[in-house]
Amino acid sequence: MKIRHSLFAVLALAVATPALAFDLPPPVEAPEYTGTISGVSGWYIRGDLGYNASLDAGKPSWESYSSKDNSYDNVTFDSARLDGNFNLSTGAGYQFNDYFRTDLTLDYFKTDFDGKSIRNTSCSAGQLASTKCGFSHTDSLASLGLLANAYVDLGTVWGLTPYVGAGAGVASVDWKGMTTSKYCTGSKDCDNGIKYEDQETSGIESWRFTYALMAGVSYDIAPRTKLDLGYRYANIAGGDMTDYSENEQKKGAKNPKAQDDGIGRHEFRAGLRLTTW
């Protein structure tokens, strides 16, 4: 009797199992994120940290003024150097499709200027004619630029999207004020005890044209978030650096005393782009 009951239970379970399996919905597989987002478009915000691997000061120049005949003597810097430094950038843009996007960015950087120049005349009448007068110039600047940029994304491979881009806009260049030190050179007889006072001149702030060329690669580190690594060459047009000193202006000097030849920057940058809506 017990054996028949057991057999009956086994047969009932065997019949019921397929029916239950038929009633259950099929299993749903969770989608796998592969690191590549295709077809995402919309507004995005961005932030970048860059390093100025190379700063080119061009060929700046300065003038000396003679009140005797109201004349100006232009002197080109024999050497001019801008110290490398970090820069910051932030902006917002729109991704139109998988291949084209644009944005507006604000770029900020600071740098120090160091220049030297030598004139083939003595610093003063008390020195030998064989001596020359050397000048050491120091200054610093801060710049804030507004650029409109356009980029072409070149397709995505293994989650990496290389791109090229270009931008143009305006930049505020704010020179802080130049200190010029005079010294005798060119002869062992320079050390004659003559002391020269440093000359302080006020800096000039001006708005200038600027442009940039970019290339890099982005990677989708999360949905709607991209890591951006790139190189950028940025160039700011030349302009005025500093005015004449108060004393020189009282004697009649009117033109800007020094002018830079433009500022070129080779930057390596890293940042994030976040698609918002």
Rank of each mutant, 00 (worst) to 15 (best):
H137W: 07
T161N: 11
L13P: 02
S61Y: 10
T180H: 06
G58L: 00
D112S: 09
T105V: 02
T156S: 15
T111G: 12
T201G: 00
P27Q: 06
E32V: 15
Y219M: 14
F209I: 13
D260H: 05
G134W: 06
S206Y: 06
I204D: 01
S172F: 04
A12S: 14
E32K: 13
L160P: 01
R46W: 06
T201R: 00
E63L: 05
K182R: 15
D174K: 11
Y99W: 10
A125P: 00
L146R: 07
S38N: 12
D174P: 03
S64W: 08
D48P: 03
T36Y: 10
A19M: 15
A9R: 11
C123D: 03
F8K: 07
I45C: 00
C190A: 11
L272E: 07
R265D: 08
T105N: 09
I221A: 07
S38T: 12
V164F: 06
F22S: 08
T156R: 10
A150N: 00
P256C: 12
A14F: 11
G165E: 07
L82C: 05
E246P: 04
A57W: 01
A166E: 14
T76A: 12
V152F: 14
R273H: 04
Y94N: 06
F113M: 09
G271F: 02
L104H: 09
T111N: 13
K182F: 00
L55W: 01
R265M: 14
E205C: 07
K188H: 06
D83F: 13
G155Y: 05
T17N: 04
N255Y: 02
